[in-house]
Design a binder for these strands. Structure first.
Lengths: 120, 120
DNA sequence: TGAACATATGAACAGTTATTCATATGTTCA
DNA sequence: TGAACATATGAATAACTGTTCATATGTTCA
């Protein structure tokens, strides 16, 4: 922590620093955002997301497609739902999952593009 | 794992499942993508990113702005650089960090928009 | 109703991660 | 050159995360 550290002008004047600090989104906005992005930061969940981008799917098929246990998918789907990446509807015995909105694939694809450009 | 589980047609025919499975990006692409997104999934790093979106900054100023120790920012900057979210240039004693490209804030802002829409 | 199917969930465990502390490296300038 | 400043890094630790296993809940249909 850097509480009462005297402000230095190494790269930039003190007023500038304050300005940048003030311009940051409030913690109540940035913390949920970090939680939201953390959901993208897992291989299994990323496969679930990409699979759902192609088709609404039930839990057992998702488990087959991403090749993890039913329990594991279910746990991940709970997170994905909690953070509004996916939505569900019941259809008989099954529950059909799909992506919540366009933002999800927008983020996914921007990430892919970034990596493609930086490759090598 | 779901190795030789007999394919069921619960929500969708078996051929459809195969199609979705085949359409997934290869692991060598999805795993780095997960690592890339994981970097966004931390409060401190998100603050660093947003601060850098406003201005190129040195380590000590970043530490002040995001309110963590110099060592902590430095460790995070190493990750941010490793995954190409930021770039550095030296200016005398200091090192000035800035965002690597537009994709970073594009992802950041799409996330913010998503949360804003889902609020409540 | 009850058997069979589909999904969800809690506890436990192994692996990962963010910070701190101490210290090392790199740069400037008197 | 060496003191002062700026940044980086390794080890240690506490907190968190993803999977598994066992089991519970919910739904259909005979």
């Amino acid at each position: 922590m850097s509480e009462n550290k005297p402000k230095k002008d190494c790269c930039f004047a003190s007023e500038g620093i304050e300005k940048v600090a003030k311009m940051l989104s409030p913690d109540e906005e940035l913390m949920p955002l970090a939680e939201f992005f953390r959901i993208f930061g897992d291989f299994t969940r990323l496969k679930i997301i990409q699979a759902l981008s192609a088709h609404e799917l039930c839990v057992c098929h998702l488990a087959e497609i991403v090749n993890v246990s039913q329990s594991a998918v279910s746990h991940q789907l709970r997170l994905l739902k909690q953070y509004r990446l996916v939505k569900v509807r019941r259809a008989g015995k099954e529950k059909l999952y799909s992506l919540d909105d366009e933002h999800i694939m927008e983020i996914f694809n921007t990430g892919l593009m970034h990596l493609a450009e930086k490759k090598g």
